[in-house]
Write a protein that binds this DNA or RNA. Sequence first.
DNA 1: CATGGACGTAAAAAAGTCTTGACAGGTAAA
DNA 2: TTTACCTGTCAAGACTTTTTTACGTCCATG
Lengths: 77, 77
Amino acid sequence: MVRSSGPIRPKAGEDVAGDRIRTRRNELGMSQQALAKAADVSRQTIISMEQGNYAPSVYLALRVGAALHATVEDLWR
Amino acid sequence: MVRSSGPIRPKAGEDVAGDRIRTRRNELGMSQQALAKAADVSRQTIISMEQGNYAPSVYLALRVGAALHATVEDLWR
DNA sequence: CATGGACGTAAAAAAGTCTTGACAGGTAAA
DNA sequence: TTTACCTGTCAAGACTTTTTTACGTCCATG
């Protein structure tokens, strides 16, 4: 059994961070574009994050967390 | 100035997470091997993380944080 | 001695992240 | 209808993460 490689990701089905991010963003009345700008990343990146199946770097996670006034633990479990 | 690509990382010189991780690990009297096992990753990965210039995925960060009884915010700021 | 643990370096392979840019559908307002 | 904003898809390209394997050193014991 070889865990081939690539960034560490959640087990399939345990990936709910995207939903929490989207929910939080909507609560704050922000568009994806606005969040992207606040976190200084591309809109594509925000889209991918919300759709799950995406394992951002800690630094991106911290930026998004800050932009949403939440902690990494809050959003990614 | 075009941010070419690849995971988001800290600005050069602001990368001190490695030191905090190593310090915390030593405080707990753990070897790199032990931490690697606790976080279920390779020892190489731990080495890279401690040496800085490395942007782990949020999920890896969460595992290491848990193994060190610390939050992601504590370690990566 | 020599055995073993802890740390470090190196390099290839596999799989991801993140950006840019183009294009398209839906909805709300002028 | 036209304009504008929001969301989504697709794809190429540049650069990174993480694993595995192997090898080299230092230090503490036996």
